[in-house]
Computed example of a mutant assay.
Amino acid sequence: MKSLLFFLLFAYALIGQDITPSAVFSVRGYVNDFVVSDGKLFVATDRGTVDIFDLKKMALVYQIVLNPTEDGWGERVPVRILSVDVQDRRILVTGIVKDGFRAVWLFENLRLKPIVDAKEKLMLKEAHFADDGHIVMGTFSSELIRYSLQERAPLYRRQLNDTAIGDMAMSLDRRFVVTSDESGAVRVVCAKTGKVVRELPSKHLDNVFHVAAGKDVIVTGGNDRRVCIFGKKRNYVIRTDFPVYCVGVSPEGKTGVYLKGDDQILQLFDIETGKETDRLVGHKALVNQIRFLDETTLLSSEKGPYVYLWKIKSANPR
């Protein structure tokens, strides 16, 4: 009996455990993006809203509603919001408007102000605040645009590559942009100048779907069924059996996570060793975003109406 118990404990230590969500946030429509700032969860939906939840109260406290746009047949339809970002209580919203072009709005002091409209005919993927309050936008054609909110004009436009963009993410200090593209390349770009400061030694062979940045580490996932880890001490690859559509990394760069297989299971792993640990189980649709609050708390969303909150153990606690 003791031998069996020891075996079970040893097996448990090897394979980790399945963790279920601690809480679930529900919105109307599908979640396309979300961020967390000052104890609030900001959820961008395909129904033209940014739903704002208080994480302590676990309740919806405010909703930003964009005016409908026109589709190709002249019908009024909700704006499909692609991305949301928050800095100093300012909210940046990017969405699809008339003729499929993108628009960007700034929500500040309870007022929604247009920044970029459809007349500029930009095919934006997403937009983020930089460290100095300007914004950085990425287009599907791998063009990076630094934009002045005051002047409502580009400060630079840089063509990073001649292939389509895969994903982009800001560094924790918002000074750098990490970009990927369908060639498998991963680059670190200075947000202020638009210059590539480092091209990472990527082992990707195909489109890189998702990028995440933590302290001294970048994690990427791609169509080639690989998770690439670019760390301060070493770089390595985790090979999987399914395209990796979503990845994440904790702020201190201790814990990584990736979407494993087609059962929507999120696999945690130790960044330092590459060892897979616990699994997050509960998603019902394709996972599209993962954000860590700290080393033991993260949220993830799916192509559905839900954002899940998870509590985990910290890897390599110091």
Rank of each mutant, 00 (worst) to 15 (best):
S3M: 08
F6H: 12
A11D: 08
P21M: 14
S22L: 03
S22R: 11
F34K: 08
V36C: 08
V36L: 11
S37N: 12
K40R: 15
A44G: 08
A44Y: 01
T45N: 03
D46F: 01
V50E: 00
D51V: 14
F53S: 08
D54W: 09
V61E: 14
Y62M: 00
I64K: 04
V65T: 05
V65H: 02
V65N: 01
V65P: 00
L66H: 00
T69S: 13
E70D: 13
G72M: 12
W73A: 07
V79F: 00
R80W: 03
I81V: 05
S83M: 11
V84R: 08
Q87V: 00
D88I: 03
V93Q: 01
G95A: 10
G95D: 04
R102I: 07
A103E: 10
W105Q: 04
L106H: 07
L106D: 14
E108Y: 04
L110K: 13
P114S: 13
P114Q: 01
V116F: 08
L122K: 02
L122H: 02
M123P: 00
D131N: 03
D131H: 11
V136S: 10
G138C: 05
S142D: 12
E143N: 15
E143Q: 15
R146M: 06
E151W: 04
D162E: 02
D162K: 02
G166Q: 08
M170G: 09
M170V: 07
L172F: 14
V178C: 12
T179V: 13
S183F: 01
G184K: 09
C190H: 01
K192Y: 05
G194L: 06
K195W: 00
R198Y: 13
R198Q: 07
R198M: 15
S202I: 13
H204E: 07
L205S: 13
N207P: 01
V211G: 15
V211F: 06
V211C: 11
A213P: 08
G214M: 01
K215I: 08
K215S: 07
T220G: 00
T220F: 03
G222D: 04
R225T: 01
R226Y: 14
V227L: 03
V227H: 11
F230Q: 04
N235Y: 12
N235Q: 11
V237D: 15
F242T: 14
P243K: 06
G253T: 02
K254V: 01
G261D: 02
D263P: 07
D263G: 06
D263I: 06
I265G: 00
I265M: 06
Q267P: 05
F269S: 06
F269A: 06
E272Q: 14
K275L: 09
H283P: 02
L286W: 12
V287H: 05
Q289W: 10
T296G: 00
L299R: 02
L299Y: 15
S301I: 07
P305T: 09
Y308K: 15
Y308W: 15
I312N: 09
